[in-house]
Computed example of a mutant assay.
Amino acid sequence: MGALLLAARKGSTLVYVGSVGTGFKEAAAWKLCEELDKLVSKKPTVEYGGRRKAVVWVLPRLFAEVEYRAWTHDSKLRHASYKGLRDLADTADVYEIE
């Protein structure tokens, strides 16, 4: 896995907000890959204008905790770093774009 594409809620839809390719510890990355393999989808979940060659789409069922420095002018995360998956019961603070 090179990076995760990230989405955030905007009303009732999901929008692409960038990717995260750092912060993965080896054991956590293997576990994450196992979880993602169960969620593979043939269709994109969000509108994505980037390179599509190696993208594996998954159903949006996992909540990642990501640390970042700022938002860019085009609503993407800057300097994102993966911290781990959140428990599904701990999603009250999931960021929603206005």
Rank of each mutant, 00 (worst) to 15 (best):
T72W: 00
V20F: 01
K25M: 09
D93H: 06
E65H: 13
L88N: 05
A29N: 10
G11H: 13
M1Q: 09
V56R: 11
G84P: 06
T45V: 15
F63P: 00
R52E: 14
A29M: 07
E35M: 05
A7L: 07
S19E: 12
E47G: 08
L32Y: 09
G18M: 02
W57C: 02
D37P: 00
A3E: 12
L62C: 01
E67A: 14
S81K: 12
R52S: 13
V17A: 08
A7E: 03
L88I: 09
R9G: 12
V46D: 09
R69M: 12
A80Q: 05
H79V: 03
K31Y: 09
K31I: 07
A28Y: 01
D74H: 01
Y95L: 14
V40P: 06
G2P: 03
E67R: 13
K83M: 14
G2D: 15
G18E: 05
L32N: 01
T91K: 12
Y95F: 15
A28I: 05
F24D: 12
V20M: 01
L36I: 10
R52W: 05
E34I: 08
G23N: 05
H73P: 02
P44F: 12
V58K: 02
G21L: 04
D93G: 01
T91H: 05
E47H: 14
V94M: 06
K25A: 13
E26N: 08
V58I: 14
R78Y: 01
K53S: 10
A89S: 15
K38M: 13
A92G: 11
A29D: 08
R61Y: 11
W71N: 04
E98H: 07
G23E: 09
W57A: 03
G49W: 08
Y48K: 11
G49F: 04
L88V: 02
R78A: 07
W57M: 04
R52C: 11
H73L: 09
T45C: 13
K31C: 07
L85D: 10
V94N: 09
A89F: 11
R9S: 12
K42Y: 01
G84W: 06
L62D: 05
A64G: 07
G2H: 08
A3Y: 08
C33F: 04
